[in-house]
């Protein structure tokens, strides 16, 4: 009894239960197969891709669902015409050019979850390329530069100007600012 109490006091020193396996940074890297890319660009990998390369990736991997040039098909429209989004824009027309506020989200999401039925098959270069193609199709970049870890976070998205923090959230968490 006395030993058990002493033992639990020891285990709970510093308020910890001593449960769980410590991992090395290398082990964490191996588990982290689809690393997050933050709006700051943190997490973007080496590599790059151009609009022309992206057009080929898009045609092979994306067009079947999203239309020949991003106009939408069985699945979401990716290239936007109506800008800015107003309270009268049909949600069907929400797309990258008028609704997506951060360029890094494109890389994060495409690498993470696309193509829909076979996620994870694109190389980092292919992801950069298809991101370049989609930004170009939306009239956001002119295609003169490849997209990479340096250029992508610098791209200015039109929809960012419309994005605001929810007031209820702002009240509860006054320290939050949108990137």
């Amino acid at each position: 009894m006395g030993l058990a109490v002493a033992l639990s006091a020891l285990v709970l020193a510093q308020g910890r239960y001593q449960i769980g396996q410590p991992l090395s940074e290398e082990e964490v890297r191996r588990w982290n197969v689809r690393p997050s890319v933050l709006a700051t660009g943190a997490g973007l990998p080496p590599g790059e891709g151009t609009v022309d390369q992206g057009a080929q990736v898009y045609a092979a991997q994306c067009a079947a669902c999203h239309g020949g040039s991003g106009e939408g098909g069985a699945f979401n429209r990716l290239v936007a015409e109506p800008f800015p989004v107003t309270k009268e824009t049909n949600p069907r027309d929400f797309a990258i050019g008028n609704y997506w506020p951060y360029p890094t989200t494109l890389f994060d999401y495409i690498r993470r979850a696309m193509p829909f039925a076979t996620p994870g098959i694109l190389s980092d270069d292919e992801v950069y390329a298809v991101v370049a193609y989609l930004l170009y199709q939306n009239g956001i970049i002119d295609g003169s530069q490849p997209m990479n870890a340096a250029t992508l976070p610098e791209v200015e998205m039109p929809a960012r100007a419309l994005l605001q923090l929810d007031p209820t959230t702002q009240k509860k968490f006054p320290w939050i600012t949108l990137p």
């Binding site: 997050s36 890319v37 933050l38 709006a39 700051t40 943190a42 800015p84 989004v85 107003t86 309270k87 824009t89 929400f94 990258i96 609704y99 997506w100 506020p101 951060y102 890094t104 989200t105 994060d108 999401y109 979850a113 929809a159 419309l162 994005l163 605001q164 923090l165 929810d166 949108l178 990137p179």
Partner: peptide, 23 residues
């Protein structure tokens, strides 16, 4: 910092009557 993932930027954000979008 937050990740600003697809489902907190192009989905699950709200278009208000004044045309702003809430995150």
């Amino acid at each position: 910092a937050p990740v600003m993932s697809k489902d907190e930027t192009s989905e699950y954000t709200d278009v208000m009557a004044d045309g702003t979008i809430r995150a």
